[in-house]
Design a protein around this nucleic acid. Structure first.
Length: 888
RNA sequence: GGGCGAUUAGCUCAGCGGUAGAGCGUCUCGUUUACACCGAGAGGGUCGGCGGUUCGAUCCCGUCAUCGCCCA
C-alpha cells in the first residue's frame, strides 16, 4: 500500500543509484538504434549548482530521457572544464592561507596541487547534477585537461599554426594587472564609472603662447602620448594638422594629425593619442605610423625607465594620475575638470580595471574561421531556436576580432611552442618533435625553451563536441555521435562557446557540431532581478529539492521555460508543482485501493464503455501533444498538457466518472474500467517520466507496473505512440455533454445557494432521443457528481418555481419550489438572458455587414450563424422560464 | 548611439487574425472514505497609448511611452 503522501527524500537517492548502477544512462555505440546526441555544456570544475544549471540540465535531461524512451541510442556527454583562471585562483587562495604563493612552489608542484584539489573538490558539480536527476552517460565523463582532450588541443593548435590560422603578434590586449594575464574581450565587462574629464593645455611648438586643449579620462597615460588628433574637417584646428605640440612634463615633441576618430562635438575636439594604452588610439597610431610608447608595467605601475620623468617612475597608475594632474595645474596647464560618467573595462574574475597593454601574444584568426560558421547558419545547417538568436550570432561573428588565446597563468594547456636561442619558434605536438624540427633548422641539437603560457580555457571547450568522442582518433563514437542533435544553453554563452564550437567543428570535422541550438531563458528572481550573491536574492536549487522534491523543481522549470522569455521564479510555483506530484501520488493510491492494476495485453482500443473509450482518446491526444511540444522545444506546452490531463481530465473527471462503475455490480464493466484506469495511470507515468523521473519510476515499481518491459524500469520503457483510431469522436461528444450537464447543475446550485449536501431532483425537458439515451447511460455518475436525487426526462411544462438552465436542445430543470428565492432566480435568469442577448447582437452586427458576408470564409460565417442560433434558442428558453416565474 | 525583447486578470505567465486562457492569490460553499499539498463554484481583463492594413486586430504594420537585456 502506498504511503499517504509522497516523500521525495526517501526515493530520490535510491532511485538514482539504481538507474546509474543498472547502466540505464549509457549510450550504446554498437546498437542499431538512431543515435541522439547532446553535448553537455561542461560546467566549470570549480562551480556548484545554481538555478541556471538547474534549468539547462533539466531541459537537456527531458530531451535525453524522451529520446531514450523513443528508442533512440541517446548519448548525453557529460564533463567539466578546467576553468584556467578560476581554478588557479581557488588553489592560490588556499596557498595564500598558508602564507604562500604559487611561485614559492614552482610550476610543476603548483600544477600537482591543482590536480590534488580537483581530485578532492572537483566533483561537487557532478554530484549535484545527480541530485537533479540528470541522466548523462557518466561512464564517458570527460575533463578538458584529460590526456586525450589535451592531445586534441595540441593537435588543433599545431594544425592551425601550420595553416597560419594561429600566429604570434604584438597587439594591445586586455591586461589584468592583478592576475598578470591577458584576457579575451569576452572576459571583460564594462561597468559604468563616475570619473572626470581633465582638460589639459599642450603648448604648440614654436608658439609658446598658443595651446591646444585635449580632454582625457586618463591623465597618467599622457607620459606615453605620441600625437594629438583633430578631426580633419574641424575648422578650429585645420591649420595645425602636420604641426607639433610639446608634451608637458616630458618635453617630447608630438605630431598633430587629422583623423576622423577625433569628435569635434566632444570636449575640445582634440584628443591626445596614446597608442600603447588605448584601443582606439592604437588604431589611430597604426593609421599614422605613430610611435607606441609603453609607460606601464604588468602591475599597471609607471615603468622605471629613462623615458619617464624621474618623479613618476614606479608610481601606481592612480597615484601617477594625482601627481600629474597636480603638476599640470602647477604649470597652469590644467584648463578645467568636469565630472564624467563613462564605461570602464573590468576583469570578470579579478574585478580590476583592465589595462590595455602592448604585449606579444598568440592569436587565432577568428575572422577566417568565422566565415564557414556564418555560412552554416545562413544555410540552415545549424538552426537556432528561437530563431531570433541567429541575429546575435551573426552580429558577433561578422564583427569578430582576432582571438587572443594565450594566458599568462599555469593551469591549463601549455602552448606547444618551443623557442630556440635566437627566438626561432618551433610549434609541434610534442617536445621531441620540436627538438627534431630545431635540429633540422639549426643543423645540430639545440636547447629549446617552451613557451610558458597556457591556452584560453574556451580553446579546449571549443573542441568539446569532437574531442570527447576520441578525436583525433577516428573512433566509432566520433563516426556515430558527431554532429550532435542539439546544443542547449543560455544566450550568454553564444559568443564564448557556441560560436567557437561552430568554428572548430567546421574546420576540423567538416560539419557543424550540432543541428539545433536551443537557447533558453535566464532564471531571475520573482521580481525579474538577476540572481546574484551581492543582491542576496539567490535561490539555491538544492534547497528547493530538499523542500519540495526534485520532480517539483524540474516540472516547474520546464513549465516556465517558454521560448524567448526569462523565467521569473517564484517559490510558490515550485510548491504548486509539489502539490501536483502529491496529486499524482494520491491518484495512484486510489487506483491501488480500487484494484486497478495493469493487465498484461490490455488493448485500450478494444474497450467498450464510453467513459473508457473517451479517456483512451484523451491519452492518445495528450501523448501526441506532449511529444510534439518536446520536439519543438516547447517545454512549457508539454508540461502544461500533462498537468492539465493528469489533474483535470484524469483526476477530476475520469476517476469520478468511474466511481459508480467500480462500486456497482456489473463485473464486466468493473474489470474493463479497472484495467483502463490502471492503463491510463501507467501512460501518465510514461509521459511524465522525462519531467518527473523519480516519482514516476517509484510509482510504477510500487504499483507493479512494467509488464512487458522486462522490469527494467520506466527509464527504458517505450514512449506511448498511438494512431488516430484511438480517438472516438462519439465518445468524446458524449462525455463532453456529461461534463457540461454536471457543470451546469453545479453552477446553478451554487448560484442559487442550494446547500452543497442537499440531493435534489433534476428534469431534462425537450431532450432529444440521443440526449435521453446519454442521460440513461450515465445516470449514476450524473446523480453522484451533480449531487442529485433523481435525473429524468420530461415532456411536461416546467413545474412552478423550478430553476432553469439550458443545455443544447434541452432545458435543465431543478424543481425547488418553495426552497428557492424567486426574486433571486428572476435576477439570475435576467442576467443570463442579457448575456445571450448581447452575444446575439454582436453576431448580428457581423452578419448584417455586407462586407463580412461577402469576404469572410464560408466556414467562419457558418460558425457565426450556428453560434447565433444556439444563443437565440437559449435566450428563448430562459425568457419563457422567466415569464412563467413572473406569472407564478 | 546601435540592436533585441517585453508590456494580456491582484501576482507569475501562456496564447495569437474570427467566442480572452492557466497556475497562484481572493471570495463563497464543502469531513461526497485517493487527495485540505483536497473538492465544487464565483468574481476579476476597453490584451500599454495612438494611428494604419483588414469584412474583422490582443494578434499583422507604423509610431510613441515605459521597462529590461546585449553591443559601442
Amino acid at each position: 500500500m502506498l504511503d499517504k503522501t509522497y516523500r521525495p527524500a526517501d526515493v530520490e537517492a535510491k532511485r538514482y543509484d539504481a538507474w546509474e548502477n543498472s547502466g540505464a544512462f549509457a549510450a550504446n555505440a554498437d546498437s542499431n538504434a538512431t543515435p541522439y546526441t547532446i553535448m553537455m555544456p561542461p560546467p566549470n570544475v570549480t562551480g556548484s549548482l545554481h538555478m541556471g544549471h538547474a534549468l539547462t540540465f533539466t531541459l537537456q535531461d527531458i530531451l535525453v530521457r524522451y529520446h531514450r524512451m523513443r528508442g533512440d541510442d541517446a548519448l548525453w556527454q557529460p564533463g567539466t572544464d578546467h576553468a584556467g583562471i578560476a581554478t588557479q585562483m581557488v588553489v592560490e587562495r588556499q596557498l595564500a592561507a598558508e602564507g604562500k604563493t604559487r611561485h614559492d612552489l614552482g610550476r610543476a608542484a603548483f600544477i600537482d596541487k591543482v590536480w590534488q584539489w580537483k581530485a578532492e573538490s572537483g566533483g561537487t558539480i557532478t554530484r549535484q547534477l545527480r541530485r537533479l536527476g540528470a541522466s548523462p552517460d557518466w561512464e564517458r565523463e570527460r575533463f578538458t585537461m584529460d590526456q586525450g582532450l589535451s592531445e586534441a588541443v595540441a593537435k588543433v593548435f599545431v594544425t592551425l599554426h601550420k595553416q597560419k590560422l594561429i600566429y604570434r603578434d604584438k597587439r594591445l590586449v586586455n591586461w589584468d594587472p592583478k592576475l598578470h594575464t591577458a584576457i579575451s574581450d569576452l572576459e571583460v565587462e564594462s561597468r559604468e564609472v563616475q570619473g572626470h574629464l581633465w582638460h589639459f593645455k599642450y603648448p604648440l611648438e614654436n608658439q609658446p603662447d598658443r595651446f591646444i586643449t585635449v580632454a582625457t579620462t586618463r591623465p597618467e597615460t599622457m607620459l606615453g602620448d605620441t600625437a594629438i588628433a583633430v578631426h580633419p574637417e574641424d575648422e578650429r584646428y585645420r591649420d595645425l594638422i602636420g604641426g607639433h605640440a610639446i608634451l608637458p612634463l616630458v618635453g617630447r615633441r608630438i605630431v598633430i594629425v587629422g583623423d576622423e576618430y577625433a569628435d569635434p562635438e566632444t570636449g575640445s575636439g582634440a584628443v591626445k593619442i596614446t597608442p600603447a594604452h588605448d584601443f582606439n588610439d592604437f588604431e589611430v597610431g597604426r593609421r599614422h605610423q605613430l610611435e607606441m610608447i609603453n609607460v606601464l608595467d604588468r602591475d599597471a605601475r609607471i615603468i622605471d625607465d629613462a623615458i619617464i620623468p624621474e618623479a613618476y617612475r614606479g608610481l601606481d597608475r592612480y597615484e601617477a594620475r594625482k601627481r600629474i594632474v597636480a603638476d599640470m595645474e602647477a604649470l597652469g596647464l590644467l584648463e578645467r575638470i568636469e565630472p564624467h560618467t563613462h564605461m570602464l573595462p573590468h576583469g570578470d574574475r579579478s574585478g580590476m580595471v583592465i589595462e590595455p597593454w602592448l604585449t606579444d601574444q598568440w592569436y587565432c584568426d577568428a575572422v577566417t574561421l568565422a566565415q564557414p560558421a556564418i555560412k552554416a547558419v545562413e544555410e540552415g545547417r545549424t538552426v537556432f531556436v528561437p530563431k531570433q538568436w541567429e541575429n546575435t550570432y551573426f552580429e558577433w561573428m561578422r564583427n569578430i576580432q582576432p582571438w587572443c588565446i594565450s594566458r599568462q597563468i599555469w593551469w591549463g594547456h601549455q602552448i606547444p611552442a618551443w623557442y630556440g636561442p635566437d627566438g626561432a619558434v618551433f610549434v609541434e605536438e610534442t617536445e621531441d618533435a620540436a627538438k627534431a624540427a630545431a635540429e633540422a633548422h639549426y643543423g645540430a641539437p639545440t636547447d629549446l625553451t617552451r613557451d610558458p603560457d597556457v591556452l584560453d580555457t574556451w580553446f579546449s571547450s571549443a573542441l568539446w563536441p569532437f574531442s570527447t568522442l576520441g578525436w583525433p582518433n577516428q573512433t566509432k563514437e566520433l563516426e556515430r555521435y558527431y554532429p550532435g542533435d542539439v546544443l542547449v544553453t543560455g544566450f550568454d554563452i553564444i559568443f564564448f562557446w557556441v560560436a567557437r564550437m561552430m568554428m572548430m567543428g567546421l574546420h576540423f570535422m567538416g560539419d557543424v557540431p550540432f543541428r539545433h541550438v536551443y537557447i533558453h531563458a535566464l532564471v531571475r528572481d520573482e521580481r525579474g532581478q538577476k540572481m546574484s550573491k551581492s543582491k542576496g536574492n539567490v535561490i539555491d536549487p538544492l534547497n528547493l529539492i530538499d523542500e519540495y522534491g526534485c520532480d517539483a523543481l524540474r516540472f516547474t522549470l520546464a513549465a516556465m521555460a517558454a521560448q524567448g522569455r526569462d523565467i521569473k521564479l517564484a517559490v510558490g510555483r515550485v510548491e504548486g508543482n509539489r502539490n501536483f506530484a502529491t496529486k499524482l501520488w494520491n491518484a495512484a493510491r486510489y487506483c491501488e485501493m480500487n484494484g486497478c492494476v495493469p493487465v498484461p495485453g490490455f488493448d485500450a482500443q478494444a474497450v467498450k464503455l464510453t467513459a473508457n473509450r473517451w479517456i483512451a482518446g484523451e491519452v492518445a491526444k495528450t501523448a501526441a501533444r506532449t511529444a510534439e511540444a518536446i520536439e519543438a522545444y516547447r517545454f512549457n506546452d508539454a508540461a502544461g498538457a500533462l498537468y492539465q490531463f493528469t489533474w483535470n481530465t484524469f483526476c477530476d473527471w475520469y476517476l469520478e466518472f468511474t466511481k459508480p462503475i467500480l462500486n456497482g455490480d456489473d463485473e464486466a464493466a468493473k474489470a474493463e474500467t479497472r484495467a483502463t484506469t490502471a492503463w491510463v495511470l501507467d501512460e501518465i507515468l510514461h509521459l511524465l517520466h522525462p519531467f518527473m523521473p523519480f516519482i514516476t519510476e517509484e510509482l510504477r515499481e510500487q504499483l507493479g507496473g512494467g509488464t512487458g518491459t522486462g522490469g527494467t524500469g520506466l527509464i527504458r520503457a517505450a514512449w506511448p505512440v498511438f494512431g488516430p483510431e484511438m480517438e472516438d469522436a462519439a465518445a468524446q461528444a458524449e462525455m463532453d455533454w456529461v461534463v457540461r450537464l454536471i457543470s451546469t447543475v453545479r453552477t446553478v446550485r451554487s448560484e442559487m445557494n442550494v446547500p452543497a449536501g442537499a440531493q435534489i431532483p433534476m428534469l431534462l425537458k425537450d431532450a432529444g432521443t440521443e440526449t435521453a439515451r446519454r442521460l440513461d447511460t450515465h445516470r449514476d455518475l450524473i446523480l453522484r457528481m451533480a449531487r442529485l436525487s433523481s435525473a429524468d426526462t420530461t415532456t411536461e411544462p416546467a413545474p412552478k418555481g423550478a430553476i432553469q438552465a439550458v443545455l443544447d436542445e434541452a432545458a435543465v430543470l431543478l424543481p425547488l419550489a418553495g426552497v428557492i428565492d424567486i426574486d433571486q432566480e428572476k435576477a439570475r435568469l435576467r442576467k443570463e438572458i442579457d448575456k445571450l442577448s448581447g452575444e446575439v447582437a454582436k453576431i448580428d452586427q457581423k452578419l448584417n455587414n455586407a462586407n463580412f458576408v461577402s469576404r469572410a470564409p464560408e466556414e467562419v460565417i457558418e460558425e457565426q450563424r450556428e453560434r447565433r442560433a444556439t444563443a437565440e434558442a437559449g435566450r428563448a428558453k430562459l425568457t419563457e422560464a422567466l415569464a412563467r416565474l413572473a406569472s407564478a
